[in-house]
Amino acid sequence: MILQVCTKVCLFIIILFSVHSFFAGHYEPGGGFIGGLMTSGALVLLLIAYDMKTLKNILPIDFKYLIAVGLLFAVGTAAASLFFNVPFLTHAFGDVQIPILGETALHTATLFDLGVYLVVIGVTMTIIQTIGEDE
């Protein structure tokens, strides 16, 4: 009971922290790998406090597909340079006007990092789930 209540409080703090370090990766220590590990750490906490079923109710996704989606993001970002006839993996950046946030500096390396982030979550959760479900 205590664990479950604590989890409810901590879960969002951990996820926020992981998202923060994911976005801070360009200027400060952090990035896709550590962010992904911390997000999956939060999900593992959920697994410990509740059970596999609860996690599946909250997040009804197959984590194996998450790996594939993440890889697609990473390779897709890299391969997009093919269309602009610049060397593979060349990144682009610029200030973009976004309706709510206003002018924001965006860099395609973030998309690559998002791929890393998703792959790390997918791999960690797949490992833990398959070992956990194993009889």
Partner: peptide, 21 residues
């Protein structure tokens, strides 16, 4: 195309990802 020599690496990796689905 300057990226030509990466295609023998890129084609199988994209196929592999697609097949994961």
């Amino acid at each position: 195309m300057i990226n030509f020599l990466i295609l023998p690496i890129l084609v199988p990796i994209l196929t592999g990802i697609l097949l994961l689905f």
